[in-house]
């Protein structure tokens, strides 16, 4: 049985040249021959220490960076991203109501009353009260802002989301709430996630499968239970040992 895919990444290699004035400087490889799939409905964790290329991979998938080799194939349209820092992901010049309606204005398929209705609906899904619509982002707490970011990312109804450390800037209690929210939304809205994190506990709670990355290479991938119970690669064992 072939499962339906939302994303295929095949042999992606990516790097950059050191800036030189007269000629290109030395080449640094950030991603090396990265290959994986994300299946419909799953939350795929991506773990590895910082500087290992996780964010570059995210940027490559979203076409912010062109890979030097390999291909990224999306099977869904308009994938969205949830960022780590809930302070810089919301435009400070506008109210929450405007921020949530803007993706629908850009999408351009709905009239004003329908847009308002969809904003209300999404606000309910992320469990925020109606009063926040007239607030500016700076008037909200970190957890509330991350809920608004999630709502803004989801309001165009994408099927695939990249979440780059979405809870690591939040308090532990708020973290648990947001993780539960993401899980609920996955079921309600048929979402698939690439969930980037350095926190193995969070990955264990949330993800179905996990990729372990080191120095731009995927060293191990598989179901979360398998990886956590029977790690094959040395690096995965080190990571797990460090987390205990």
């Amino acid at each position: 049985m072939k499962e339906e895919l939302v994303l295929s990444v095949r042999h992606v290699t990516s790097g950059y040249h050191e800036g030189g004035v007269f000629r290109r400087g030395a080449y640094h490889e950030v991603l090396h021959d990265v290959t994986f799939d994300i299946r419909y409905g799953e939350i795929l964790g991506l773990v590895g220490e910082s500087g290992t290329g996780k964010s570059t991979l995210a940027r490559t998938i979203l076409n912010m960076v062109k890979p030097d080799q390999g291909v990224v194939v999306h099977y869904t349209r308009r994938p969205q991203m949830i960022f780590q820092d809930p302070y810089s992901s919301l435009n400070p010049a506008y109210t929450v109501g405007w921020i949530l309606e803007e993706p629908l204005r850009i999408y351009g398929k709905y009239d004003a009353p329908e847009r308002k209705r969809r904003v209300r609906d999404m606000l309910d899904r992320v469990e925020l009260p109606g009063e926040v619509l007239t607030a500016k982002p700076r008037e909200l707490s970190g957890g509330q802002r991350q809920r608004v970011s999630i709502a803004a990312a989801l309001i165009q109804r994408p099927r695939f989301i990249i979440a780059d450390e979405p809870v690591s800037a939040l308090d532990v209690t708020i973290q648990a709430q947001i993780l539960k929210l993401l899980k609920d939304l996955r079921d309600e809205l048929d979402l698939s996630f690439l969930f980037i994190s350095h926190d193995l506990n969070v990955v264990y709670q949330l993800c179905d499968r996990v990729l372990v990355m080191k120095a731009g290479r995927i060293v191990e991938q598989g179901a979360v239970d398998d990886i956590f119970d029977h790690p094959q690669a040395d690096y995965t064992r080190q990571l797990l040992a460090a987390a205990e």
Partner: peptide
């Protein structure tokens, strides 16, 4: 900045990003 990246992912054109998303924040 992230909110500009988001707007780009949502399909906003360069004109809209410049005039609506960035300009008010340069005031």
């Amino acid at each position: 900045v992230n909110y500009v990246k988001s707007a780009r992912l949502m399909g906003a054109g360069n004109g809209r990003i410049l005039a609506v998303h960035i300009l008010p924040n340069t005031m």
